[in-house]
Design a binder for these strands. Structure first.
Length: 234
DNA sequence: GCGACAG
DNA sequence: ATCTTGTCGC
């Protein structure tokens, strides 16, 4: 089982969450990710019961064989509403519960959310990295904060994402002619590594394979929890 | 006060 | 995120 750090009590209110983000922001380490990574994990969550519970899912993707080598899911009751900028407090508990069941330790983890590209430089990808103590990359499908110029239309094109005068990530085109994704460092990673890793993890779709696999995992699992087809009753 | 706002 | 039908295109 993967070891998770125990940093403090989980906040129960928005103000407590914001204060915690400010405190933890100082602990995020931005550094290059060296070596050729092979085991890349993807994390995602789906919601059940009209948002009353969250289903977290993690897959470990072998980049060389292009296969899922391990996966795990966990269903947890939601204790926090969705508030832009505070996504962590709604989703992270479910993700951590899934990681806790994981046997392998991935070399890098991709989160379907922002990392540094956050108003307080503490997006879900950063939090996840602090708990796992593993390099993490934030790869979001839409913008939360920051500005950027126009980028080329070919795969690999990228422009800096800037917020309040500092680069917090990049807008990266993962497929030619397809809408770009917003990449930012989580923990133990830097902007350049985040982009390089994201491109390496993306084969033929807009989002990196690990995230896509994790998304399908939680979607499938949720369907199994809800549906009760007559022909499968045991 | 007004608009923006990851999943 | 979730709800939700058909439709256009490789």
């Amino acid at each position: 089982m993967m070891k998770l750090a125990r940093l403090h009590a989980w906040p129960r209110t928005a103000t407590a969450g914001v204060q915690l983000q400010h405190r933890l922001a100082m602990r995020v380490v931005l550094q290059p990710v060296t070596g050729r990574t092979r085991l890349m994990a993807g994390a995602d969550a789906a919601f059940c019961d009209n948002g009353a519970s969250a289903l977290g899912g993690v897959v470990v993707w072998d980049r060389l064989t292009q296969t899922v080598v391990e996966q795990s899911t966990a269903r947890v009751a939601c204790r926090f509403p969705y508030i832009p900028g505070l996504l962590t407090f709604r989703e992270l508990p479910a993700l951590l519960a899934a990681f806790r069941k994981l046997r392998m330790t991935p070399e890098v983890v991709f989160a379907d959310a922002h990392g540094l590209a956050h108003p307080r430089r503490m997006g879900l990808a950063c939090m996840l990295g602090l708990w796992l103590n593993v390099p993490t990359v934030g790869c979001a499908k839409s913008l939360l904060c920051g500005e950027h110029g126009t980028l080329g239309r070919r795969r690999g094109s990228a422009v800096p994402l800037v917020h309040k005068g500092e680069q917090v990530g990049a807008v990266l085109r993962t497929q030619s002619g397809v809408k770009p994704v917003y990449v930012s460092p989580g923990h133990l990673c830097d902007c350049e590594s985040a982009c390089r890793l994201t491109l390496a993890a993306t084969s033929k779709y807009r989002v990196p394979d690990p995230i896509r696999q994790a998304h399908q995992l939680v979607t499938r699992t949720k369907a199994l929890l809800v549906e009760r087809p007559r022909h499968t009753i045991s």
